[in-house]
Design a protein around this nucleic acid. Structure first.
Length: 479
RNA sequence: CGGGGCAUAGCGCAGUUGGUAGCGCGCGUGGUUUGGGACCAUGAGGUCGGGGGUUCGAAUCCCUCUGCCCCGACCA
């Protein structure tokens, strides 16, 4: 009482044990919970609302570029999966199979989709005949299943929600442009909606998607300086369209195989929000994606006129912002403050008898604990400005973290020292040889995150073997 | 798949040399409260993760299975 040393008693300290902290947030903020199905979580309303906000924002951007939504089956026959060699080799270990149904063993077993390139491509072969049909720019919002050994809510569960876009095009160039266009949308989602700055670039041969010619990625950094792949966009060339026979008659009247892409973001983004923004008070949500942007808490609710005034303000503002009003009678205001802070609500309005007398109320920011007093008539304008400021400030905090935790290494000794110091990203030159990549991973547990578009010249020799190197690679330990 | 932990009320835990289960929080009800996790009263809630064994008797000892968490290897 009064003494608030037990203030965060229910949440593990983020600096002492971030893994446990993460699990605490997921459960205590009621984002998700473990189920009786191993590795699969139940996403609760508050967590799902975040996903819906991500969906709405992203889907709108997709559609502006001509994406059309579809739905394909969750079951894929084994024969389809087998058609592209690299793809099946990449996914086989983590695929779940349906072998029996209706009390009988199936003639051909069906896999539960880990991703849907094979079935999209199969259907495309039926639907495509002329260059005039192209492009197909289809997407689906769905679930997929990957039999992960080690799971963690949102960041790596066996079943997860995502969107997967699958496109085919008349020309190589058009497909490549689409790949990069979608990556740009993902960067927009991460940075503008989630306030998470990302590094964009291309994956190395070792790290690219099974069956792709090129994999592009957006890479985020977590609170503790680890890397988190937040979205990927792939260019396939004709790798799938050839074995799946996706042909069209081109402008010259000849048969040609289409050029293909795919791209996805998943509920992992919710994990990214938790890991990038959270602190010892709990979850911290950027206003644009927060299911509740403003919570209004009456003080001394039983006093004359307090409840009425609070409801009046709530009713006025709720058409403009995603609002909650906390009228619970059984808990104190202090409890409510902490409760909503743990749930990451960006802005809180406190209003009590003293404020009402003066025609004021208090605005408290979740991101930096700042409290200001504002006139009630200026509330609406103030909220708009502050929410925008919170969104920007949260982005800047993460941006600063990336800058602080990104270091340069010219040799393996520097590399190891830097990564051991505080995780983070390492910028280092690389010769292009997969053996060097493997050696670095072995010695430092860091993998190549990407070859960033934003290249810097930091040397002429490979950080590992010392031979000539032209490309700067971002390295890091990952979630 | 390796290494390490854990499993007792919704959550966090205690339970001694084996004797048939308790505490805190939360929850229900009634009341008093309300400016940073309020209080009083009174209730409800458990085949001690599953199976086997030892024993007159097992939450406790032994075997086994399962699940979860963490650290590695593999992946969105």
């Amino acid at each position: 009482m009064g003494d608030n040393k037990n203030f965060v008693k229910e949440i593990t300290n983020i600096d002492e044990d971030i893994a446990q902290w993460y699990t605490d947030i997921v459960r205590k903020a009621e984002l998700a919970d473990y189920t009786d199905t191993k590795g699969c979580i139940a996403i609760r309303p508050y967590g799902y609302a975040i996903w819906e906000n991500i969906q709405n924002y992203t889907d709108k951007l997709f559609k502006e570029t001509g994406v059309k939504n579809t739905y394909f089956p969750v079951l894929i026959p084994e024969s389809l999966l087998q058609k592209e060699k690299d793809h099946v080799e990449g996914f086989a270990p983590e695929v779940a199979w349906v072998t029996e149904a209706g009390g009988e063993e199936l003639e051909e077993k069906l896999c539960i989709r880990p991703t849907s390139e094979t079935i999209f491509t199969t259907m495309y072969s039926k639907w495509l005949s002329s260059w005039r049909d192209l492009p197909f720019v289809y997407n689906q919002w769905c679930n997929v299943l990957r039999w992960e050994k080690e799971t963690r809510p949102f960041l790596r569960s066996r079943e997860f929600l995502w969107q997967e876009g699958h496109t085919i095009h008349e020309t190589e160039q058009e497909a490549k442009e689409r790949t990069l266009q979608m990556l740009e949308i993902y960067k927009n989602v991460a940075e503008k909606l989630l306030a998470i700055p990302v590094i964009t670039g291309i994956k190395t041969e070792t790290e690219k998607f099974a069956g792709a010619d090129a994999t592009y990625t957006i890479e985020a950094m977590t609170y503790d300086g680890k890397a988190l792949q937040a979205g990927t966009s792939h260019y396939f060339g004709q790798n799938f369209t050839k074995p799946f026979d996706v042909k069209f008659q081109n402008r010259e009247g000849k048969q040609e195989y289409a050029y293909q892409t795919s791209w996805g973001i998943s509920t992992r983004l919710i994990g990214a929000i938790i890991m990038a923004h959270g602190d010892n008070r709990g979850l911290k949500l950027p206003p644009k994606v927060a299911p509740t942007q403003v919570v209004i808490i009456p003080i001394a609710m039983h006093k004359e006129g307090v409840k009425e005034k609070t409801e009046e303000i709530y009713n006025k503002l709720k058409t403009k912002y995603r609002m909650e009003i906390d009228l619970r009678e059984q808990v104190s205001p202090g409890y409510k403050f902490n409760d909503w802070e743990m749930k990451g609500v960006p802005l809180r309005i406190e209003i009590g008898p003293r404020d009402i007398e003066k025609g004021e109320c208090i605005l408290a920011r979740r991101d930096n604990n700042e409290k200001i007093t504002v006139k009630i008539e200026e509330l609406e304008k103030q909220i708009e400005e502050i929410l925008e400021k919170i969104q920007n400030d949260m982005y800047e905090v993460c941006k600063k973290r990336i800058e602080e935790k990104t270091t340069i290494a010219h040799n393996l000794e520097e590399f190891q020292a830097n990564i051991n110091k505080e995780q983070g990203f390492i910028k280092a030159m690389w010769c292009g040889n997969a053996e060097c990549e493997a050696k670095i991973k072995e010695l430092t547990s860091a993998k190549s995150r990407c070859i960033p578009f934003n290249q810097e010249h930091i040397g002429d020799t490979c950080v590992c073997c010392g031979k000539k190197a032209e490309k700067m690679v971002i390295w890091g330990r990952q979630y």
